[in-house]
Design a protein around this nucleic acid. Structure first.
Length: 387
DNA sequence: AAGTCGGGGCA
DNA sequence: TGCCCAGACTT
């Protein structure tokens, strides 16, 4: 069998398999370009089962591009809470504003316009154009590269940009006339259900008999991929400050900076501590550091004791968190101290860190990264029930 | 080209 | 517990 026949076989049998085996997914129930766009952004780095409930809530809350464009950013982040990579949510809303202003609220169907949307790169542009508009554009994600690297025995490193370009050219050749939407979805569906990263289910694969990697017995060692660097460890001390007086029953939270890691989300106050050789630092100095960092923000508190450890792994950082319960103290000079500090530091209102006291029910109003959600839930669960 | 940016599933 | 998954943006 020559290469042309191998390609024809692949396209034909993969498409037939997909039409019989495709999953019933919320964004496949209508051909609504907005639904498809939202789903593709959510599906970046994220598995289908995780995305489904988020997608349903998101569409219920923001049914149209205009609803998303006009919403407060915090509402959008709250809807994304726990899904990760929050720049996706911020970019998606910025792009919704672009679509509203430039395209009358209709997701554009031409390549340049789709590609110009914030958060839309080569993969997502191809996915929207092909899945929503049936345009013969490649949509090459990790699933597609895994499937193609095995079937055609491509041993180039899939982390290289040149490899993705090559795969895009290959996909364009493979798309059957007029079937871009189903074919691109078929490629990804095969990667997700059959041609899995570890122990692929070759015996149920519709194209196994001409899969080059399978014929060579090397399917498990493809695709070739450089390993990511391990995340660097960081130790942090977290203060869970319980309010006193008018803040009784509430805890102190703050908003993260406008840019960078977890931008504009909310968190418990915490401070990084130097790496100690033994790993965690003893409770006494840890609590001193926590209290000291709060005082610098004009918040007086006394330590009450150790609460819990928590861990959180980002792609490039691993947080080791030591959480301590603290109690707000009344310190009449605190306000003056803070005023004096802010005068000296000349902190502009817009860049000063925002602190708030919140009760359990207020958690619904603020978007937290999972690790702080976990700590807060643990804390409120531990409280004696209030009648 | 290399670093930044989350979170979950699995053995 | 450790390993795997990997798309867009920034520098």
């Amino acid at each position: 069998m020559n290469q042309t026949e191998q390609k024809k076989f692949f396209s034909h049998h993969l498409l037939e398999w997909y039409m019989q085996n495709k999953r019933d997914l919320p964004w496949r129930r209508h051909r609504n370009p907005y639904y498809i766009w939202v789903s593709e952004i959510m599906l970046q780095q994220t598995r289908v089962d995780t995305v489904i409930p988020y997608f349903n809530r998101f569409i219920e809350r923001f049914p149209t591009v205009e609803d998303l464009a006009d919403a407060p950013e915090q509402d959008v982040l709250k809807c994304w809470e726990g899904l990760g990579y929050y720049s996706r949510a911020r970019n998606l809303q910025a792009a919704a504003k672009q679509v509203k202003e430039l395209h009358g609220g209709q997701v554009p169907d031409d390549k340049a316009a789709v590609f110009a949307l914030k958060g839309v790169g080569p993969y997502t542009a191809g996915a929207v154009l092909s899945i929503a508009f049936n345009k013969p554009e490649p949509a090459v994600d990790g699933n597609v590269m895994r499937v193609l690297s095995r079937y055609f025995l491509i041993e180039d490193d899939i982390m290289k940009a040149s490899t993705r370009s090559f795969m895009e050219g290959l996909v364009v050749e493979l798309i059957p006339e007029g079937r871009a939407s189903d074919f691109n979805q078929a490629l990804m569906e095969l990667g997700a259900l059959v041609c899995t990263p570890k122990s692929p289910h070759c015996l149920t694969c519709p194209v196994m008999e001409h899969c080059a990697a399978r014929l060579e017995g090397v399917e498990e060692s493809l695709p070739v991929k450089t390993k990511a660097k391990p995340p660097r460890p960081e130790h942090r001390v977290v203060a869970l400050v319980e309010g006193s007086g008018e803040h009784a029953g509430k805890v102190l939270i703050r908003q993260r900076p406008q840019e960078g890691l977890l931008a504009r989300m909310w968190e418990l106050p915490h401070v990084q501590v130097p790496q100690s050789r033994s790993g965690r630092i003893p409770d006494e100095p840890a609590m001193d550091i926590a209290i000291g960092s709060l005082l610098e923000e004009g918040i007086a508190a006394r330590p009450e004791g150790y609460m819990m450890d928590a861990e959180h792994t980002f792609s490039h950082i691993h947080w080791n968190l030591q959480v301590y319960r603290c109690r707000e103290e009344f310190m009449p000079v605190a306000a003056e101290t803070r005023a004096a500090y802010e005068a000296v530091a000349a902190v502009p209102e817009s860049t000063a860190t925002e602190y708030r006291w919140i009760a359990e029910e207020d958690m619904a109003l603020y978007a937290f990264p999972n690790v702080f959600l976990k700590i807060l839930r643990e804390y409120f669960k531990s409280l004696p029930a209030t009648p």
